Amino acid sequence: MLLSLLLQAANDMGLAIMGAGIGAGLVALGAGLGIGRIGGTATEAIARQPEASGKIQTAMLISAAFIEGVALFGVVVCLLIATAT
């Protein structure tokens, strides 16, 4: 059932657009997992050493910003590839 839907979507929309959607979804999933892991690890680190919370939070926010930037870049690349073909 799923395969037939994917094949029908490939015929209707084109493989490039379907690939861009899958790529953008994978980028969003990866970014969500990365930021979730950073948040969980930072929370655990702050629980172990509360006196270092300022440094941990700063490092966490910088890392999350870099991940968001890479994720945005990945989504834009996926959309540009879809519109170029």
Results as ranks from 00 to 15, higher is better:
42 A>G: 07
9 A>V: 04
39 G>W: 00
58 T>P: 00
56 I>V: 13
18 M>Y: 00
74 G>V: 10
63 S>M: 07
34 G>P: 00
43 T>R: 10
82 A>W: 09
52 A>W: 02
83 T>S: 12
69 G>V: 10
70 V>Y: 06
9 A>T: 10
75 V>S: 07
36 G>Q: 07
74 G>R: 15
46 I>Y: 07
5 L>R: 13
84 A>Y: 07
22 I>V: 15
30 G>W: 03
66 F>V: 15
11 N>Q: 15
18 M>Q: 09
43 T>W: 03
24 A>Q: 06
85 T>K: 11
59 A>V: 08
47 A>P: 02
40 G>T: 09
81 I>K: 12
29 L>R: 14
71 A>S: 14
32 G>A: 12
51 E>K: 05
52 A>F: 09
79 L>N: 00
76 V>Y: 06
35 I>E: 05
68 E>D: 11
76 V>M: 13
58 T>R: 11
25 G>H: 11
22 I>E: 06
65 A>E: 10
67 I>W: 03
82 A>D: 03
24 A>G: 14
28 A>L: 12
6 L>R: 08
1 M>H: 08
84 A>T: 07
75 V>R: 01
36 G>P: 04
40 G>V: 03
52 A>Q: 15
29 L>Y: 15
4 S>E: 15
70 V>A: 13
33 L>A: 14
63 S>I: 05
60 M>K: 11
3 L>E: 13
6 L>F: 10
25 G>R: 04
39 G>M: 11
19 G>A: 15
43 T>S: 15
56 I>Y: 00
4 S>V: 12
9 A>W: 05
35 I>A: 02
42 A>I: 11
59 A>N: 05
57 Q>T: 09
65 A>R: 06
6 L>A: 14
69 G>R: 05
21 G>L: 05
17 I>G: 00
17 I>L: 11
31 A>V: 15
